[in-house]
Design a protein around this nucleic acid. Sequence first.
DNA 1: GCTATAAATGATAACGGTTACATTTTGTAT
DNA 2: ATACAAAATGTAACCGTTATCATTTATAGC
Lengths: 336, 336
Amino acid sequence: MSNIRVVAELAGVSVATVSRTLKQPESVSPKTRHRVLDAIQQAGYQPNQLAARLRSGKTHNLVVLVPTIANVFFARVISGMQQVAHEKGFTLLLSNTQADEQTECHYARMVESAAADGVIQLRAFNPFKREHVNEHQLHPMVNACEVLDEVACPTVMLDNRAAAAAMTRHLLALGHNRIALVKGPARSPLTRDRIAGYRDALNEVGINFDEQLLVAGDFSLKSGYEAAAHLLTLAERPTAIFCENDEMAMGAMQCLKKMGLRIPEDMSVAGFDDINFAEYSDPPLTTIAQPAEEFGRTAVSLLIDVLQGRVTKAAKVILPFELVIRNSTGPLHKQP
Amino acid sequence: MSNIRVVAELAGVSVATVSRTLKQPESVSPKTRHRVLDAIQQAGYQPNQLAARLRSGKTHNLVVLVPTIANVFFARVISGMQQVAHEKGFTLLLSNTQADEQTECHYARMVESAAADGVIQLRAFNPFKREHVNEHQLHPMVNACEVLDEVACPTVMLDNRAAAAAMTRHLLALGHNRIALVKGPARSPLTRDRIAGYRDALNEVGINFDEQLLVAGDFSLKSGYEAAAHLLTLAERPTAIFCENDEMAMGAMQCLKKMGLRIPEDMSVAGFDDINFAEYSDPPLTTIAQPAEEFGRTAVSLLIDVLQGRVTKAAKVILPFELVIRNSTGPLHKQP
DNA sequence: GCTATAAATGATAACGGTTACATTTTGTAT
DNA sequence: ATACAAAATGTAACCGTTATCATTTATAGC
């Protein structure tokens, strides 16, 4: 592999001139510029990024900590990240952490060991050690999707509370007054906020919160199925099930249909995220649309701003949601 | 950020000894080892990877070229890759190429510019320039999922032809003799192989191939929907639809149900991949299960072997598939 | 105590760029 | 032609490691 010295010799100039030809072409006279470019061509020269990065101290790598890539929503978020990263000359180092804190810390440490410039964390966990926390200094990190409130860190989020309230109001407006909520992972702030929104909406119309109607889930199809199965065993069944993501809603629908219930006549079902499959489920799913790709795009762009010193405050960017009403929710039908 | 010199001074040894303490601890006497480790601790020293990589010429980065991360199947493949990469101390540089050749070449060039050691390509396209092809030298590349036959390159694949034949035989055995096939992207070898398998099975029982029953698709839910809609307009309708992936099968089912057809009584539908949603669709989808995570694991492991010179031939690893029969396929019911 | 050998450590040159500073060349005004 | 500023180019230090080779120190055998 040829290096800058070979090119310099070939062009009959110094290595500095070769470097300048590539980095600041305007500072090199047209005729030497041509000579150098010809030599580069001839030598098949590709500048060694490692060397350049070592000298400049910038890796142009961004670590992405994602709990599970196999999650359709996250896959879309990453897709958006990739787009902006590519445009701005950055590369994404992907880490599928399975929500394992040790793995997250391991990858975050790549920043300290100069293997990456910054981190995008899609989960509510701070992978940086306390010791390194400098009160007035931002970590080179951006938090997206799931809010990490303990640490001052630029964040891209949805108003989950408002979104959950909007969906709950939609169900209430259809006449439902026993609405079950299938939660996400217990510790997630996302879950907490959505529960809050759900309660807000119930309070508005004076319906008492019933603990029984809150069921644990983990965002998987299976947990949605099981949650629905559990709800059907209750003495006082709900008439609507609001799931904190679409996968669980689809799992729940599968269970309900298997038990012979019609959707939405016998039970309304709602989801959250508006994944591709939501539109194609049977019946098509009522859900909250989140701008997944936009989450990714904004997060990367924000992180680059932080790295380049253009952002110095832990700003929060709130992205809009949309209530998408399809056919899985409908008016309450009185049981005969 | 403290460097190796600071640590060396702190421990009262040379930089070489510090380096050795970390890389080959056995070559350092126990007492200096302790002294050095203490100094490292005290200085909060993290070796600079950029420097180490520049010197050693290895980046421990692998570029992954994936057409669309948002594809559920690929997401699982990447998940498997990540697992092995992490275990072996490698990092994945993710590139969502949207099947754009220019983007693919751009990322592949990272190998030449020392930003990555190798490439895993999930699509049938060679991102390396011809000029660099050395007849007897392997590219630092592994091809997975979609076979790239023009270039000698280690490959991880499924016997798509056999799998498609197996599914077609299953449908034939149920009494279907007009079986439609919804294809993937036209240029894909994967599509070509699956068509070949489909024809193999038809030939075995002496059914003539009908061009009309071959419909174009692009692996999206929408294209499955449209393909089904088209098939329903045919004068001689098929009684079964075999889609080259599960998303299209789910799109097709949505269309059929909307048109009032029952599945499988009026029309059997089969997919390919066995994504999570397949089990939870209505009805649960008959499909070909592919070991997606295993694709990823094998690909990474193979690439590392190539990089370390343990593999010098363009070996093909063929992974097993499994015919998963659920309820979307059933015996032919004669129309009244 | 004295070699011969092995083990541990040190000094220093790479790795391949970038960049501050020094030097040369070019251009312009007198 | 001369002086002087501006533009172009060259020189060499530097980024933080690792690897090679030389040197010192420990170990063993006699």
